[in-house]
Design a protein around this nucleic acid. Structure first.
Lengths: 95, 95
DNA sequence: ATAATAGGCAAGTCGTGACTTGCATGTCAA
DNA sequence: TTGACATGCAAGTCACGACTTGCCTATTAT
């Protein structure tokens, strides 16, 4: 649970998730180039790779190897748990 | 927006939000003692105070002075935006 | 086989954030 | 008014996280 929130705490990682929502199943290099052009991100390949590892550890991204390519896809399920953690019921008023 | 996610990235702050959901409108000292007893938290008053400041800056907590007391109440609205950011539509498949 | 492509691993730097420490401010009860 | 209560402010310590750097492994095309 802690990994999930820490993963979302970084702006670059949130941008990666946005990018994967626009176009799922991308390779590391595709993500790098599209982040650079469309989102103006200047991060190196290694930086993005480490971010993807964090996202995968948090359960937000799943990977699948295809030869020498590694495809990354977003998984939105953990975000529902976030939403429902505090939104289910209104807070209790103090007596 | 960044402040919101960074605020949620800390376990102690999430516990504070849980506590405020169980009992809204608490003072700093109330939060401290209840965190210590019920949640087993050993944080000092100053630590909790700083956490509350972060939560307030993120729009997750609102405060209201009452004499020498300062009451803290949770505000769940920002969390809805989180939920709807990635959960609205499914990701696009790559062509 | 060889080179180019796609990705992985590990140590190191550096800034930010969580927490502490000490003192200051404001408010109420006696 | 004085003391106890509730909170605020600021500097300093320390660890963790983001990023870099350099090299290594594996797969594919020529």
């Amino acid at each position: 649970m802690d990994e999930l929130f820490k993963a979302l705490a970084d702006q670059t990682r949130r941008t990666i998730l946005d990018e994967l929502r626009e176009r799922d199943n991308q390779t590391l290099f595709e993500i790098c180039s599209r982040l650079a052009t469309k989102h103006g991100l200047g991060s190196t390949r290694q930086a993005i790779s480490q971010h993807l590892a964090v996202l995968e550890a948090a359960g937000l991204v799943r990977t699948r190897r295809d030869g020498r390519h590694k495809l990354h896809s977003i998984t939105a399920e953990p975000l529902r748990q976030i939403a429902e953690r505090w939104l289910r019921d209104p807070p209790e008023e103090a007596p």
